[in-house]
Structures are given as structure tokens and as C-alpha cells.
Simulated assay, not measured.
Amino acid sequence: MSAPQAAASPTPLNIAQRSEQSAVILTVDGVLDAGNSGELRDSITKATFDEPFGVVVDVSGLEVPGEDAWSILLSARWQFETRPEVPIVLVCENRAAREAITRSGVARFMPVFPTDKGALKAVTKLTRRKVHRGEAKLPANLTSLRESRKLVREWLTSWSKPGLVPVALVVVNVFIENVLEHTNSDPVLRLEVDGPTATIAISDTSSAQAVRLASPPKGIDVSGLAIVDALSRAWGCVPTSSGKTVWAIIGPENQL
């Protein structure tokens, strides 16, 4: 009988860091896989710690096995420790890869450019925009439902976005309900308003990903995430070092 084979060790990534125009530039080479994705996520997160002008991640030399794998970059954006006010942008010389990044939804939060020059110019523009942010850690009990709705209403009203309140309340209620039903976590609520859109994000400590269930063959699909899908521009779930973050983007066209 042959000896059992040892589990393959994670493939190392080469991540080089330099500074340019007060921004941190990370250049990543290697093959992205499940074993080293955390290394990339943590490197991007740490690059925001000193609050640089921005973080530019050059992924031109990164080999990604499948289009969905690009979404690991979003986990750095939604890490609890990441400085949300520090813009993160991507550089990728390969046009097909840039298109894949865009299709994956990553570019919604991390714009992608073909050159460092374009990315640094974008960082300058992004740091000048006015983004409103609110964050709160809530208890792992039913009072979080009422408190999250109260906070979302107060924040959006104070930021002159009352038209987004009705849909935002539905979305945050679904997300908090899911955390309370499926985890033992204290949910962390984050709300960001950037121009006409708002992003609602809920983080928890469970690694189980939020997945929309298949629609029933007959009748109306009234599952929580089906409602979020119908009411938002986009939504998703990304793993983080402490669990996961579920997010949704809503705009003025999203109405009840």
C-alpha cells in the first residue's frame, strides 16, 4: 500500500511594495489559489493602515484560475480592519483580465486601469470625492433589527438621501435577520453613501457564505436574498479573515 500523499502547500505569491506620489503600490505575481488568497487580502489591508493617499494593486502578473476568483480582492475592501477612506484601485495590463474583473463585480469598489499612471490619477480624484460613512456593532439579538433600521434612517436622512430610506430599510432588515438566524455573531453594520448610491454592508464571524436559494418551481420567490436581489443594483458576499461581509448597492432607481 502506498503512503498517503501530503497535502499540497499553498503556492507563494510575490508581493512587492513601493511608494509613489504618497500612494502605496503593491505589485503581485504568481498563481492565486485558495491557499494564498488570504495573503493577498491581508497585504492589501495592511497597506491601508498608515492611511496613505491610496493603494494601487498591480495584478498584471497575477494568474487567476477562474473569473469568480477575482472576487477575493473584494474581501480586502470589506475587511473590518481596512481603512475605508483609503481608495483601493487596480492595475491590469491585460484587457481580457480587466473585463473579467469588471464582470466579477470587483470594479464596483476597486476601479481597474491599464497603467499605474491612470490608477494614480484616479486615486487623486477618489480622495477628493465626498463619501459619507456610518458604522455600528450591534448585539446578537432581535434588538439589532430595530436599531439597524433606526441608524440607517438617521444616517440617510442626515446625508440628504431620504429617497433611499425605504429600500435601505428592507435590505438591512434582511441582512440582519440572516445573521441572527444563521450565526451567533454580533453583526457589524456599515453604510456608505457615494454620490447617488448607498452601499449597505453587514459583517459577521461566520465563514458560511450567504447564498440565495433556488426559486420555487411555482409561486413567488419571497426569500430574503431574492428580495435584496430585486431591490438593489448589485449584491454579493465575500469572505474576510474573521468571517464574511454581505453587501448591496442601491440607487434612486431602486424603489418599492
Rank of each mutant, 00 (worst) to 15 (best):
F175E: 03
V222P: 02
A230H: 10
A230V: 03
T197C: 15
I200Y: 05
V174A: 00
V222Q: 14
V228S: 11
N184S: 09
L189Q: 08
D204S: 01
A230P: 01
T205D: 12
A198F: 08
A198R: 04
V170Q: 01
A226R: 11
G219W: 10
G195A: 10
V174N: 00
S185D: 00
R190P: 10
A208D: 14
P187D: 03
N184H: 08
P196M: 09
N178P: 01
D204Q: 08
L231F: 07
A214H: 14
D186Q: 11
T183I: 06
I227Q: 15
T183M: 00
E177H: 11
F175K: 02
N178E: 10
I200P: 08
P187R: 09
K218S: 14
L213N: 04
D229I: 00
L180A: 10
S207G: 12
R190D: 03
T199Y: 03
D194H: 09
A214T: 15
A226M: 10
T197S: 15
A210M: 12
L191D: 06
G219T: 01
T199D: 13
R190Q: 11
V172Q: 02
Q209G: 15
D229R: 04
V179W: 13
S203K: 03
A201S: 10
V174G: 11
T183H: 07
S223D: 00
I176A: 03
E192T: 02
P187T: 04
P217Y: 04
A208R: 05
L213W: 11
D229W: 12
V171Y: 02
D229Q: 11
S206R: 05
S215R: 14
K218A: 15
S203L: 10
L191P: 00
V228A: 12
T199L: 05
T197N: 13
A201C: 12
Q209R: 14
N178M: 08
A201E: 01
I200R: 07
L225Y: 04
V170G: 02
V171Q: 00
R212T: 05
L213T: 15
V222C: 14
E177M: 08
I220D: 14
V228C: 10
D221P: 00
I176P: 01
T205K: 07
I202M: 12
H182Y: 12
L191T: 03
S203W: 02
L231Y: 01
Q209L: 15
L180E: 02
G195C: 12
V211D: 07
R212G: 09
N173G: 14
L225F: 13
S206E: 10
I227T: 14
N173D: 11
P216I: 11
N173T: 15
A210Q: 08
G224N: 04
S185V: 08
A201W: 01
A214V: 15
S215P: 03
V170C: 05
Q209V: 15
K218E: 14
L189T: 02
G195I: 05
A226S: 11
H182E: 03
